[in-house]
Nucleic acid binder design. Structure first.
Lengths: 128, 128
DNA sequence: CCGGATCCGGTCTGATACTG
DNA sequence: CAGTATCAGACCGGATCCGG
């Protein structure tokens, strides 16, 4: 695995990902954990706001959600923009790069449905 | 996330996965880490033996590889069978369930190639 | 030697509490 | 409500050990 992260001097830590020559390795460097793709699934389902994301049945912890959203923004999969100013509130929407992950999720969903039958929720994702 | 693992009494720990109603969640419960899909990629590339797997450029640690192979066997994605007796050596081959993950890896590879250009190794996986 | 198993320090995860 | 701080425990992975 390419060494995922390096910490800059001082207190600001900056994400930096090395490129592997294998595209799958690169994908797993950014998306290879339990939560990231789940957040993306929710965004594809049309959820946009923090409270919608955190209400998912998988019960992601608030710090993990915040961290993943930040990482996704850094990696260019998600953009964050304010939809309200008092108090300040943001919406998270998938970029094209993020939306293009749909075939990955579709393939996972198909495999999951085949081998873990009885799953019906999110059986088909709505169009972006 | 469904609580992945529970430890049985005594010292033998047993893997047990709960089912979520979302197929993607189930997939990520078993495959949602950096190494598992990479091992499956290697097996799809035709690698079968321990030393072939551990020689991959990503430099997986030996304990992690052994652990992942064990988990994949428990989950029914891989079968382990001896190919030699003195000394005892095993081969790891994908089951149909494992082979059926090909569309997932294909989708990842396609996305990775699009957004991390310059990746050429493993550009196309050979047929199983 | 090879295929693992064991050990162990460092990192990351995630439940909870906290803040504006 | 939208995040941040904290902290114990889980996990990762490098080094080492061991049986065949």
């Amino acid at each position: 695995m390419t060494s995922g992260r390096e910490t800059a001097e001082g207190e600001s830590s900056e994400l930096k990902f090395e490129r592997s020559c294998c595209p799958i390795t690169n994908v797993l460097d950014t998306l290879g954990d339990k939560w990231t793709l789940l957040v993306i699934r929710d965004l594809m389902l049309g959820k946009k706001r923090y409270h919608e994301l955190i209400a998912s049945p998988e019960k992601i912890a608030s710090n993990i959600l915040a961290e993943r959203l930040k990482k996704l923004e850094v990696c260019g999969l998600v953009t964050r923009c304010a939809y309200q100013w008092k108090p300040l509130r943001h919406e998270y929407v998938l970029t094209q790069k993020g939306k293009d992950l749909r075939p990955v999720l579709d393939a996972m969903r198909r495999w999951g449905r085949e081998y873990y039958p009885g799953t019906m929720v999110f059986a088909t994702l709505p169009p972006c």
